[in-house]
Amino acid sequence: MQIIKYTALSLLLALTTSAFAQTNINPSRKQAIDSLALEKVKDLSKYISIIGSKDTQFSEAKRVMDRAEELFAEDSEMGVSSLESEEISYFKVRDYFERLMALNYDKVKIQWYDIHYVSDLEQQPDGTYVGVITIYQRFEGTSKDGSLSYKDTTKKDITIYVKKKETQIAGRIIEFWDVLLGDIKVTETTA
């Protein structure tokens, strides 16, 4: 279903734009790309909630981690900072998910604020466009006996890479814009 959804959204990006190659991203195309990027971010947030939940079976969590990893460009990292420390800890995306799954709480509740900020897309030297989507997550972890209780709100600044690709449909070359997630900066907030 996910593949169908992304393909459909990608094709919309192809269908709503000219068949000819264009370097610039005009506002309507930008909005369509934003929709596809937000769809991927929304899926990531859903996957994080499933991976973090203590109700999720180990095998299911592993499967969801695989799906979540597919959203990312190769070598993507999470840089995590907390209020206690000035320094940022860096994790591979898979390691971050595994740490989230292994947290020592009996109950974990992950919620997402109804906020997203999507930056402009900037072209990098190789022609790929890059942008950042900011979202906020609320985490609550508790142990059965109440000895362990923690909650925080984290800001997640998520890199998105937007690249023009080609596919062949019924003998015709169709160009479309593909979106992949990249490095994520996770910042603990005072909220």
Partner: peptide
């Protein structure tokens, strides 16, 4: 499908 997508929050 596009209109199905909304913000990241889950209400």
């Amino acid at each position: 499908i596009c209109t199905m997508q909304s913000s990241v929050g889950q209400g």
